[in-house]
Nucleic acid binder design. Structure first.
Length: 852
RNA sequence: GCCGAAGUGGCGGAAUUGGUAGACGCGCUGGACUCAAAAUCCAGUGAUAGCAAUAUCGUGCGGGUUCGAUUCCCGCCUUCGGUACCA
């Protein structure tokens, strides 16, 4: 049947084929990359435009016009400046605008592994693989200017049928805040201005100091000689702290005074400028105007450094204890806006700032541009070569750029990515290719278009195919991709749409999150500091004690579940054999110490602490993702071998709603297996001979059939597959009870079952004498006539409590039902002298008698 | 902390628009078949009391709206997912 399904076009390996390192697929991913390189995003036009259009504008008017429309951080140039630039300078300048561009940025660098790790590959400051330290390192990376599309990505969410929680995740990730940008000139050097972003410009009269991120570009200029030593020490200290440490000490207040003052452009007051590590270099301008009366972090800082707290609203209270971030009341101590409320104050201030050239209304995003390169071997090579420090794109005809042969998939001795190992891999034999490769999300950001036209030589898909298929009707994927894959894909799609290459703005109309089938993850506790140069693993109970008693820190390291005894139970542990298996698997830890209550295992032998004969190194079990990364993948082949693919498939559906995550267990799979055999037994006798007859089905048998068709058709529409399976079970049980073996019923039922149990259905379909595939037949429709019963069983409730059920003719009107119920003797005993006040009849549903 | 989702028998879960709470399955108990077991079939299975009919309680907790609430409203608790000093 696999062959037959293949013939129908369902290739089981289709997706895998397309997405792995296949030259065809590399080619079109690289082709799209080049389109991104050749375009810039014009905010005024609200779409991507060819970079040539930008060059024309630069030549005509400099970037004054496009600066605001594109990237406001670009240095300002005039048409004359542009004309004076040589080709290289222009190329370098255009990198400020291209939708993909190289940029210095901080990455998680693991020196021991010689590679950059993504955030999810770093756990507790150590690499998941091998448990090595990871540091922040500034590296030149290719980036995608996804921020250019922030507003469109936000607005597009309103047009698609995706889960609200997922949309919210994307909204929060994009993090649009509306506020104002204000420039504070330095007190003794008014040419230099500190620009801040604030969402509470109304609190500007409450500013009592300024705070800059330690990485802020003005730091050295602002620092006075008397403060220089202290500032430099603070900057060094802040830079040395890893993200992990910063996160652990979130509530600690640290900072240093620069010695400089700046001037509040609205009030004209002088305020001191501090550095503080609660200000993030990567958000806004890396500087904040501190309003301790309205912001808790500013308040904490003010208290720590004994800075003044000025109330600005008459409703503010308790400022000695905490900040008051509410917007209630009328402004006080606020010259321009005294007596106003929040709603009037904000526009008045922004107006003032703009007309006095001190600032403007501004929208700020939390989202940053996406780092696009990886220092790995596998992945599409970035189709770019470098000449005198400037990247040049390959031409379309030079695609695909394939991965070169290398001796090892490891970084070079000088720390270059693995592609640096390739000998003579140069453009025109002289220019070095970009050595990083694209991340996994590059290819996954557009692949559905290739499915529309997989063999097209001239384009990733033809206009005809795109016009026919348009977009993805239903995308099924995990919610863990909410702010990764699903956002990047939307970004690429909006870009392709701008170029007329994608038919719709959004790539998927509807999306549902299938819940993850989870596994049990087993962790080993690894002490973060080495002991005499040896890694030390301890039993979970020991780790807990040492953590509590000495504050010793441990990292959790996922290990292969095959090594674990009593896997998945609270008592899971490694025996000596398990430890040895672990060492064989991870030779880095050959000299490690393993310690449990029973003793120590090292260098291949067990040293008991007392008279213990063996050790149990407790592991920590956790329900979580089933993933290669956690070495806890259950191979479905084993289940398929035992129960068959249909049973496996149906059991997965039967486990519960498709969106819910659930740990994998095979507890109930026998029930589904039993059902499939019962279903098959409707067609065959116990002895195995064919039992289907051509008799006319009874009304009851047809009712069962049509009720099932109705139920399953409706439940498929709402992705309620677990209840579909339940409906099949009910139908099978009822037909079994009725002894129904009639073709007219069973033939239809097989078709309804086909999407759920494709193999068994196909087998039975052919056994019924059909020659074509069941998967080509049309789905049956139900006939309501068979579902109408002559009588309806009404539950009769007294004051909402069901007391008895009575059959009434289906044709009875509500008035007749009420009269019948009022006259019922069986009700009398519940009345206990009370009288019937009212009778509520819900036709076809129930009858409630109100007694009082 | 903030954002989102969810809490129903021993377990997975059902109840689609406010209308018989616990469909279906697992497990468990008893029975049939068997020398015996497996498989299969039949019956029972929310809790408490009762031989039973039945009664009372029962959808995380406390209130409310309603003839009637797992479903709607208000206030909490817990769990999971996301995010994290975002100015």
């Amino acid at each position: 049947y696999r062959q037959q399904l293949d013939n129908l076009g369902f290739s089981f390996d289709w997706r895998r084929e397309v997405r792995t390192s296949n030259p065809d697929y590399y080619r079109w991913t690289q082709w799209i990359f080049l389109r991104l390189f050749h375009h810039y995003y014009d905010q005024a036009a609200g779409k991507a435009l060819p970079i040539e259009a930008l060059e024309t504008r630069l030549a005509a008017e400099g970037n004054a016009g496009v600066k605001a429309a594109c990237d406001e951080h670009t240095p300002r140039i005039t048409a004359a400046d542009w004309a004076a630039m040589d080709e290289q300078a222009r190329a370098r300048f255009l990198l400020h605008y291209r939708l993909t561009f190289p940029e210095e940025s901080f990455v998680n660098w693991c020196p021991a592994l010689g590679t950059v790790l993504s955030n999810d590959e770093v756990k507790d400051g150590l690499s998941e693989r091998g448990g090595h330290p990871v540091e922040r390192k500034l590296m030149k990376q290719w980036s995608m200017r996804i921020t250019a599309y922030a507003d469109r990505l936000l607005e597009g969410l309103n047009t698609i049928d995706w889960p609200e929680s997922l949309k919210d995740q994307q909204r929060n990730w994009i993090g649009r805040s509306q506020g104002a940008s204000v420039r504070f000139p330095l007190a003794d050097h008014s040419e230099t201005e500190i620009e801040v972003f604030t969402t509470r410009v109304d609190t500007i009269y409450g500013v009592t100091f300024m705070c800059l991120a330690p990485e802020h570009e003005l730091v050295s200029q602002l620092t006075t000689d008397t403060q220089r030593a202290a500032v430099e020490e603070y900057v060094r200290w802040a830079a040395s702290r890893s993200d992990v440490e910063r996160m652990a000490e979130v509530k600690r207040v640290t900072g240093v005074f620069t010695g400089s003052y700046c001037i509040n452009p609205v009030s004209g007051e002088q305020v001191p400028v501090y550095l503080a590590d609660y200000v993030l270099a990567g958000y806004g301008t890396g500087a904040v105007m501190a309003v301790p009366s309205g912001d808790q972090r500013d308040w904490n800082f003010a208290r720590h450094f004994s800075l003044p707290v000025v109330p600005i609203l008459d409703a503010q209270q308790g400022l000695e204890e905490a900040a008051d971030p509410t917007k209630e009341g009328r402004y006080i101590n606020s010259d321009l806006i005294n007596g106003l409320g929040y709603a009037e104050a904000v526009p008045r201030l922004i107006n003032w700032l703009e007309s006095n050239g001190k600032g403007r209304g501004k929208v700020q995003y939390r989202m940053r541009n996406a780092v696009f390169s990886r220092q790995r071997y596998w992945g599409e090579p970035v189709p770019v070569y470098w000449k005198e420090g400037i990247p040049y794109p390959l031409s379309d005809s030079e695609l695909p750029l394939l991965l070169p042969e290398v001796d090892k998939y490891l970084p070079t001795a000088t720390g270059e990515p693995p592609l640096g190992r390739a000998e003579g891999w140069k453009y025109e034999d002289q220019y070095e290719y970009e050595l990083s490769t694209m991340p996994g999300w590059a290819g996954s950001s557009w692949y559905w278009y290739r499915y529309m036209d997989p063999h097209n030589e001239g384009a990733f898909a033809s206009p005809e195919a795109l016009a026919y298929w348009k977009d993805v009707d239903l995308y099924v994927g995990g919610s863990e991709h909410a702010v990764g894959h699903l956002l990047y894909s939307r970004f690429w799609n909006h870009f392709l749409y701008d170029l007329g290459l994608a038919p719709e703005r959004e790539f998927a109309k509807k999306l549902i999150n299938q819940g993850m089938i989870q596994g049990i993850i087993e962790y080993l506790m690894l002490q973060k500091d080495k002991v005499d140069g040896h890694s030390r693993f301890v039993s979970a109970d020991i780790a807990k004690e040492e953590q509590e008693q000495y504050g010793r820190e441990f990292a959790r390291m996922p290990i292969h579940v095959d090594f674990v005894a009593e896997y998945g139970t609270p008592n899971s542990h490694l025996t000596e054999q398990g430890i040895q298996q672990f060492i064989d698997w991870r030779p880095d830890f050959a000299t490690a110490i393993f310690e449990s209550k029973e003793g120590i295992y090292r260098d291949g032998s067990f040293l008991p602490a007392g008279d213990a004969a063996s050790m149990q190194l407790q592991t920590v079990s956790e329900v979580g993702k089933m993933s290669k990364r956690y070495f806890n993948v259950v191979n479905p082949d084993d289940v398929v071998a035992k129960y068959g693919a249909d049973c496996f498939r149906m059991y997965e559906m039967f486990l519960g709603p498709i969106e819910d995550a659930k740990p994998w267990n095979t507890k109930g799979i026998d029930g589904v297996s039993r059902f499939l055999r019962k279903f098959r037994a409707l067609f065959y006798t116990e002895a195995g001979s064919w039992a289907v007859t051509d008799e006319q089905p009874s009304r009851e048998e047809l009712r069962v059939l049509h009720a099932t068709i109705k139920k399953v058709s409706e439940d498929i529409e709402r992705f309620s597959f677990n209840t579909c399976i339940s409906a099949f079970m009910v139908a099978t049980n009822e037909l079994g009870r009725l002894g129904c073996r009639k073709r007219a019923v069973l033939r239809e039922l097989v078709v309804v079952m086909a999407p759920f149990a494709p193999f068994l259905s196909e087998e039975l379909w052919h056994a019924l004498g059909e020659t074509d595939s069941v998967h080509r037949t049309s789905f049956p429709t139900f006939d309501p006539a068979y579902l109408q019963a002559d009588t309806i069983t009404y539950p009769i409730a007294l004051n909402g409590k069901t007391r008895l059920t009575v059959d009434f003719p289906a044709t009875a009107t509500p008035a007749e039902l009420e009269a019948a119920v009022r006259g019922m003797e069986s009700l009398a005993k519940y009345l206990e002298g009370k009288s019937v006040k009212k009778v509520i009849v819900v036709p076809g549903r129930m009858i409630n008698v109100v007694v009082g």
